[in-house]
Computed example of a mutant assay.
Amino acid sequence: TNKIHRSGNTYIFNGDITESYGIIVEKSNIVIDGKGHTLKSTPRLLPIGSWDFGIELSNVTDGNAVIKNLKIVDFNIGVYIWTTNNTVTGNTITGGNVGIFLAESPNTVVGNYIEDNTEGVFLGPLPDTHKTVYNILYHNSFVNNTLQAYDCECTDPHTIQHQNIWDNGTSGNYWSDYSGIDVDGDGIGDTPYSVSSDDADTCPLMAPIAFPITRNNGFLGTNIPFELGLALTVAGIVSVSAAVYVVLKRKKAS
Rank of each mutant, 00 (worst) to 15 (best):
residue 226 F to I: 11
residue 19 E to Q: 09
residue 238 V to N: 03
residue 246 V to I: 14
residue 42 T to W: 09
residue 155 T to K: 10
residue 144 N to Y: 14
residue 119 E to S: 13
residue 73 V to P: 06
residue 218 G to P: 02
residue 148 Q to S: 15
residue 123 L to D: 05
residue 17 I to N: 01
residue 141 S to L: 00
residue 119 E to G: 11
residue 75 F to S: 03
residue 73 V to F: 08
residue 82 W to E: 14
residue 61 T to Y: 11
residue 88 V to A: 03
residue 43 P to M: 05
residue 34 G to L: 01
residue 71 K to I: 06
residue 68 K to C: 13
residue 189 G to Q: 00
residue 197 S to M: 13
residue 39 L to K: 00
residue 216 N to Y: 10
residue 70 L to Q: 09
residue 12 I to R: 09
residue 250 R to F: 05
residue 167 D to H: 01
residue 19 E to N: 14
residue 175 W to K: 05
residue 92 T to Q: 02
residue 238 V to Q: 13
residue 22 G to K: 02
residue 136 I to K: 14
residue 127 P to H: 05
residue 233 T to A: 04
residue 116 D to N: 09
residue 88 V to D: 04
residue 30 I to C: 02
residue 193 Y to S: 10
residue 178 Y to E: 01
residue 48 I to K: 12
residue 193 Y to L: 01
residue 185 G to T: 00
residue 130 H to V: 15
residue 148 Q to I: 08
residue 101 F to N: 06
residue 171 S to F: 10
residue 61 T to G: 08
residue 23 I to L: 05
residue 97 N to L: 00
residue 43 P to A: 03
residue 223 N to F: 11
residue 53 F to V: 01
residue 117 N to L: 08
residue 169 G to D: 04
residue 244 V to L: 12
residue 80 Y to I: 13
residue 80 Y to Q: 04
residue 194 S to E: 15
residue 1 T to Q: 12
